[in-house]
Amino acid sequence: MNGNDFTFVLDGENIPFEPGQTIMEAATQAGVYIPHLCYHEEYRPRGSCKLCTVKINGHFGTACTMPVQPGMQVDNDTDELTAMRRRVVQMLFVEGNHYCPFCEKSGNCQLQAVAYHVGMQDSHYPHFYPLRNVDASHPDMLLDRDRCIQCELCVRASRETDGKAVFGLSGRGTRTQLVVNSESGLLGDSDFSITDFAARICPTGALIPKREGYPLPIGARLYDAKDIARVGHRQPSSKAAGEK
């Protein structure tokens, strides 16, 4: 290998990359799916959900934050990693209150889709049944913290794309929760608007438009029939949002 060889090895395949790219960016460009929840190509990676954990030269690390080096050996699609990712997804499920069968996001939810992808059959861990506040104060949006996985995508979108900083995280440990930037702490009293990019970015049903439930029947929704690895995350892009 010489200094100009910009390739690395992902699951045994040689993959080209551009200097400065993360493993996630290079893999996505090459059409390889690495499960993720808190990553969005428009924002600085946060690296908190840990779903994109891969094995890099024998050590675990997150694909969304780790820059590629020439010759790096990365394992992604292995039984070991799938089992570990399954456990993390199960943890996310028991930490909140998720009721997929009647959730408006069901079938379009990335948490649920990733759970299918990693072969989650049950919750494995005892449910925490936390008491969390629902905020229905906004005329157009519902904030249901029961379904929030604290990925901070709405926080980043509001701050960086909408220039508003409507959201933030508060508390610590398992009491960490999404808070809203208004004196009452209510979304209805903030300057949040349904046309914000942050209104469209939530991977789960935590931040969801009102009066739009179930437009498609079960079976016809995005991830009902196709694995997220094939469909992709279908994350909205702020540029497309700006055009319409």
């Binding site: 908190s48 959900c49 993390v88 996310l92 028991v94 604290q150």
Partner: peptide, 18 residues
């Protein structure tokens, strides 16, 4: 540890409670 986890990453935030 469960009381001191900062809550940033899922395996520690939830795992230490487990």
């Amino acid at each position: 540890f469960a009381g001191e986890s900062c809550g940033f990453c899922s395996p520690c935030r939830i795992g230490t409670q487990l």
